[in-house]
Simulated scan of single mutants.
Amino acid sequence: MGFQVEAYQQALPLKSVFRIARGAKTQADVVVVTLTDGVYTGWGESVPYARYQESVQSVLEQIDQTAKSLATFEGDLSGVRARINAMPSGAARNVMDCALWDLVAKSQQKSVAQLLSLSTPAPCVTAQTLSIDTPEAMAAAAKALGHPPLIKVKLDNQDIVKKMQAIHLASPESQFIVDANEGWSIDDLKACGDNLKALNVILIEQPLPVGDDAGLIDYSCPVPLCADESCHTREELAYLKGRYDAVNIKLDKTGGLTEAYALAQEAQVMGFEIMLGCMVGSSLAMAPISLLSDCAKYVDLDGPLLIKTDRENGFAIKDGVMQPLNPALWGYPQSQVIL
């Protein structure tokens, strides 16, 4: 029989319009995969991202090509792993990799954390995200969050300091991550760095376009800088050294938990701080990466808070604190699920 794959698209409506520097969206278009060996079934979710030349259709096509070959494997988990690892990094490999980890946890009667020798997941602070709007609207949105410990602020290069001043005034005890999504120039960064530090900004994420960051080598920014779009896998780390202080690890960039775990380990050895990030998706998309929270200085896994209806057994997030993964969702054998 071999391994059987089912892949399908889901549209997850958002609570409100979500705006970043390069556009806006009202729903998350995700791909869900179930992978079965005939006895056990694992599943996963990924988010195809147009910025990386992906679409739902292109991801489904990649999955279909791999699925055909997996049907010839009879109980050969190592062969399945090798075939998935051979896929290009991105959303297709991510959802296949995470579905496989879930299947292995069930078939081997060990949690994914145990399989990777990771510490038992614990509650952690996660950023909560503000999308781009007017200073007044962003301040109101920040206030509505109830003064959480960490807020992530999406900003283009319009009124950077003015917007942050309004947000800081609305939530003065919070710390902030500013995410430019490649929307600034080096002059924008230099003009606002000192002001942002004074406004409790503790990290600036991807200020400059990918490949246009040579100016960071000789610039000592008052606020630590994090590579997001510039960092997909371990291959970029040598280039990023000397330009960025931290790397944002996302499953849809690495191509799944396997590479994300390896990237986190190597990045730490090279002196980078670790940030865990996500695309806008459900708790199923956050589940695998949440297992790495113990090694991360910054966690930004609030995707489930942005969609109208999350998965059953999804993450509990209250006052900026994210509870550990529910064993009934992903990554645990059924014997460890308490009903």
Results as ranks from 00 to 15, higher is better:
residue 2 G to S: 15
residue 3 F to V: 12
residue 3 F to E: 07
residue 7 A to H: 06
residue 9 Q to G: 03
residue 10 Q to T: 00
residue 11 A to R: 13
residue 13 P to S: 12
residue 14 L to W: 00
residue 15 K to V: 09
residue 16 S to W: 01
residue 17 V to A: 14
residue 20 I to K: 05
residue 21 A to P: 06
residue 22 R to F: 10
residue 26 T to Y: 05
residue 29 D to F: 00
residue 30 V to W: 03
residue 31 V to H: 13
residue 31 V to S: 14
residue 32 V to P: 03
residue 32 V to L: 15
residue 33 V to L: 11
residue 34 T to Y: 07
residue 36 T to S: 15
residue 38 G to I: 03
residue 40 Y to S: 14
residue 42 G to H: 06
residue 48 P to C: 08
residue 49 Y to T: 10
residue 55 S to E: 05
residue 62 Q to H: 09
residue 63 I to A: 07
residue 63 I to W: 05
residue 64 D to S: 14
residue 67 A to R: 11
residue 71 A to L: 08
residue 73 F to Y: 12
residue 74 E to C: 00
residue 75 G to F: 07
residue 77 L to T: 10
residue 81 R to C: 08
residue 82 A to T: 13
residue 83 R to Q: 15
residue 86 A to W: 01
residue 87 M to I: 06
residue 88 P to H: 07
residue 90 G to T: 03
residue 92 A to S: 04
residue 95 V to D: 05
residue 95 V to S: 04
residue 99 A to L: 03
residue 103 L to K: 11
residue 104 V to G: 05
residue 105 A to D: 06
residue 107 S to V: 01
residue 112 V to G: 09
residue 113 A to C: 09
residue 113 A to V: 11
residue 119 S to P: 07
residue 130 L to M: 07
residue 131 S to H: 01
residue 132 I to Q: 11
residue 133 D to H: 04
residue 134 T to F: 02
residue 135 P to Q: 08
residue 137 A to Q: 15
residue 142 A to M: 05
residue 148 P to M: 13
residue 150 L to N: 08
residue 155 L to G: 13
residue 157 N to G: 02
residue 158 Q to G: 00
residue 158 Q to R: 11
residue 163 K to D: 09
residue 173 E to I: 00
residue 175 Q to H: 13
residue 176 F to Y: 15
residue 180 A to V: 01
residue 181 N to S: 06
residue 188 D to S: 05
residue 190 K to V: 01
residue 191 A to W: 00
residue 192 C to S: 15
residue 193 G to L: 06
residue 194 D to H: 08
residue 195 N to W: 00
residue 198 A to W: 09
residue 200 N to A: 10
residue 202 I to N: 02
residue 203 L to P: 01
residue 204 I to T: 04
residue 205 E to N: 08
residue 206 Q to C: 06
residue 211 G to P: 11
residue 212 D to T: 01
residue 212 D to E: 15
residue 214 A to M: 08
residue 218 D to T: 15
residue 220 S to H: 14
residue 221 C to Y: 03
residue 221 C to R: 02
residue 223 V to D: 06
residue 224 P to R: 09
residue 229 E to Q: 12
residue 231 C to W: 02
residue 234 R to Q: 15
residue 257 L to G: 02
residue 257 L to Y: 04
residue 258 T to D: 15
residue 258 T to I: 13
residue 260 A to K: 10
residue 263 L to E: 10
residue 271 G to T: 05
residue 271 G to Y: 05
residue 275 M to Y: 00
residue 283 S to D: 10
residue 289 I to Q: 14
residue 289 I to W: 06
residue 291 L to T: 07
residue 293 S to M: 04
residue 298 Y to T: 07
residue 298 Y to C: 02
residue 299 V to P: 04
residue 301 L to R: 05
residue 301 L to E: 13
residue 302 D to R: 00
residue 303 G to M: 09
residue 304 P to N: 07
residue 304 P to E: 09
residue 305 L to C: 11
residue 309 T to V: 15
residue 311 R to D: 15
residue 312 E to Q: 12
residue 319 D to S: 12
residue 321 V to K: 10
residue 327 P to L: 13
residue 328 A to Y: 03
residue 329 L to Y: 04
residue 329 L to H: 02
residue 330 W to S: 12
residue 332 Y to P: 08
residue 336 Q to Y: 13
